[in-house]
Design a protein around this nucleic acid. Structure first.
Length: 593
RNA sequence: GGCCCAGUAGUUCAGUUGGUUAGAACGCCAGCCUGUCACGCUGGAGGUCGACGGUUCGAGCCCGUUCUGGGUCGCCA
């Protein structure tokens, strides 16, 4: 019977030349073994790195024989004397030393894994996720998960120092019809009734302000039953916070402090604060997006007025019927081939643009899809507006819907930058986008809907417009944007009962409906509400950008795939009739397997 | 719900104009090997070409349908 204790003295990756001569014990997984016949080397791996175990003619025969049988991913516990290597490996931190093993325990054997446990593997995502526990053994995944832990720790430390309490809010909560689809949880005790998993702790954190906690934060799981993207999972984590007796500047200042701190502590990057701010309207006009990537130019230019009377209907049509014609100047874009420009045309069609007009200036050559339809001076005016120079590529989108023009050109400028390799993931350009519209009109529902949520406060100077022109009202809402990704967003909330009631009525709620859905909040306001506001970060996105990886999946230990299932556990899965019966649930439609 | 891309050995991929027994590298197994560290050398095993249907004398390759995954539009207060 082998001993069961693990007298580990060192983590594998931490041994150094200072430890030479010491008897040490290490535990871990066999990364690789090199069997030279009379000499065996095994790389032993744990979360800190790798150390080389050496077995040679001095090794006791039973130990040597055991080493002979070791295969990839066997779990080993080894004891021996740390010695200097006769030939060193400069590529790893422990490359100057090795363990001359005197005792070896094969703690568990392992089947050959379905893929190699190595850094930068480009194995199929599905396979990685099915065997996520193996995938997570890879050093890059270990680093990402550790980075996530450290960022969370900085957040807790920082907000604690700033006087925030971490307070938990319920996971079983009330469904609200505004916003994303809810994940529902049936109640056994109340047949036919459901809890909802929170899309965010929004209302609870406001109630905590009403309860007098003054400053709250929480690193909290949120749930939205919507389709996935590279930066969207059905369950994701927010750094959520709320503050009392503040206005926009106060929230922004505290959070600039956090971002400055976390980027310095984790990446050693010194961010300059305050970050630039840009009103939403300006962001749309200049970048066609409410989350502009500032790492490159290609800003939008409005040429509607220049083409109103031109003979080219593709331009003059939208220009004279409430739409717009806008362009971006892709500096140095004349290197794009005709084929590539055609593919950009296909690209904008995904944003419902009807097509892409272009003009290319390379040397004395001017080629264009539209110049032949315009007068010489009209083309010149467009080129002047675009500040076009030799080597540039002008891309024009015209549509009767401004939203489509913005969406298409906003996405196109990013796509061009991607194709031209202008995006340095180690350059961090932060931006506050402010003054979002308070409301938008939903054609589908035939009413106003809140752009942010129904508790967002209007800007003081726009209050009179609430009656006269609600769509012009700007909100005390702000997003923090990093390199074209919305990292977080928040707002100052309404704390006056009358204003809140006005908002609900604008949104088309009757008093009874508002009371039924938000009564807890409305009633709470009657008992003394402090002015308050807050912000929530997409924690996964923050970690993703700081880790320099392309998807939040890469910084979540057990993520879901595009159809919202999880390959390892194969959830969601059917449940038994007994369970359903207890919940008073009948299945009316089934997925075919 | 729409669009784009991918699916061939355990893994990553190649596979010509539709034509013999579908290949490579890594991994795996066996043997040899005392300073390797992507060890080396020799040999070997390993395939429902995602699935179904069609065209054809003949399909990994062409056509249709479908499944799975990735990206994206819609959606995501």
């Amino acid at each position: 019977m082998e001993q069961q204790a693990f007298p580990r003295t060192h983590y594998c990756g931490t041994v150094r030349t200072e430890d030479i001569g010491k008897t040490i014990s290490v535990c871990g997984w066999a990364q690789r073994s090199r069997n030279l016949g009379g000499l065996i080397f095994i790389d032993l791996r744990d979360r800190t790195g790798i150390v080389q175990l050496a077995f040679d003619e001095h090794t006791p025969k039973d130990v040597f024989d055991k080493a002979f049988t070791v295969r990839s991913e066997y779990v080993l516990a080894a004891t021996g004397v740390l010695r200097e290597r006769s030939s060193k490996n400069p590529d790893i931190p422990t490359g100057d030393v090795e363990v001359e093993v005197t005792k070896l325990r094969i703690v568990s054997r392992a089947e050959t894994p379905p893929f190699e446990i190595v850094e930068n593997s480009d194995v199929n995502d599905m396979l990685r996720l099915k065997y996520r526990y193996l995938d997570l053994r890879r050093p890059d995944m270990q680093r990402a998960i550790l980075l996530r832990h450290k960022i969370g720790k900085v957040a807790r430390d920082y907000y604690d120092e700033q006087g925030f309490y971490e307070i938990e809010t319920p996971i079983l909560t009330k469904s609200t019809p505004e916003g994303a689809r809810d994940y529902l949880v049936p109640s056994r005790v109340h047949p036919g009734k459901f809890y909802a998993l929170p899309q965010s702790p929004q209302q609870y954190k406001q109630l905590l302000m009403l309860a007098g906690f003054d400053r709250y934060m929480q690193i909290v799981r949120c749930f939205r039953d919507e389709d996935l993207r590279a930066d969207r999972q059905p369950e994701f984590t927010q750094i959520d916070l709320e503050m009392s007796f503040v206005d926009v500047d106060d929230v922004i200042e505290v959070n600039e402090g956090f971002l400055k701190r976390v980027f310095y502590e984790i990446l050693g990057v010194e961010l300059e604060t305050p970050f630039p701010r840009m009103p939403w309207k300006e962001a749309m006009e200049r970048f066609g997006s409410d989350k502009p990537d500032l790492r490159f130019g290609f800003e939008l230019k409005d040429i509607t007025h220049l083409v109103k009377d031109c003979g080219f209907k593709v331009f003059s049509g939208p220009a004279t019927s409430g739409g717009s014609v806008r362009l971006i100047n892709v500096k140095g874009g004349s290197t794009f081939s005709r084929k590539e420009i055609d593919s950009l045309g296909e690209f904008v069609k995904t944003y419902q643009a009807k097509g892409l007009a272009w003009l290319k200036l390379s040397g004395d050559q001017r080629s264009s899809s539209f110049a032949k339809f315009l007068k010489e001076e009209e083309v010149d005016a467009i080129l002047e507006a675009a500040e076009a120079q030799d080597g540039d590529l002008i891309l024009v989108v015209a549509d009767t819907s401004n939203e489509i023009v913005f969406a298409a050109l906003g996405a196109l400028r990013c796509e061009c930058a991607r194709r031209m390799n202008l995006l340095d993931p180690r350059e961090y350009r932060f931006l506050w986008v402010t003054e979002f519209p308070l409301l938008t009109y939903s054609e589908e529902e035939g009413r106003f809907v809140a752009e942010h949520h129904p508790f967002t406060a209007p800007m003081d100077e726009d209050l009179p417009l609430l009656e006269s022109n609600p769509l012009r009202v700007r909100a005390k809402a702000y997003d923090i944007v990093l390199n074209g990704t919305e990292l977080g967003g928040g707002s100052i909330r309404i704390h006056q009962t009358e204003l809140q009631e006005k908002m609900f009525s604008l949104l088309g709620f009757t008093e009874e409906e508002a009371q039924a859905q938000f009564g807890h909040l409305i009633n709470a306001f009657r008992y003394g509400a402090p002015p308050h506001g807050g912000l929530a970060y997409g924690f996964d996105r923050l970690v993703m950008l700081m880790a320099g990886v392309p998807a939040i999946r890469d910084v979540i230990a057990f993520p879901k795939v595009q159809n919202a299932s999880e390959p390892m556990t194969a959830c969601p899965s059917p449940v038994g009739d007994k369970q359903l019966d207890e919940l008073s649930i009948a299945i009316t439609r089934k997925e075919e397997d």
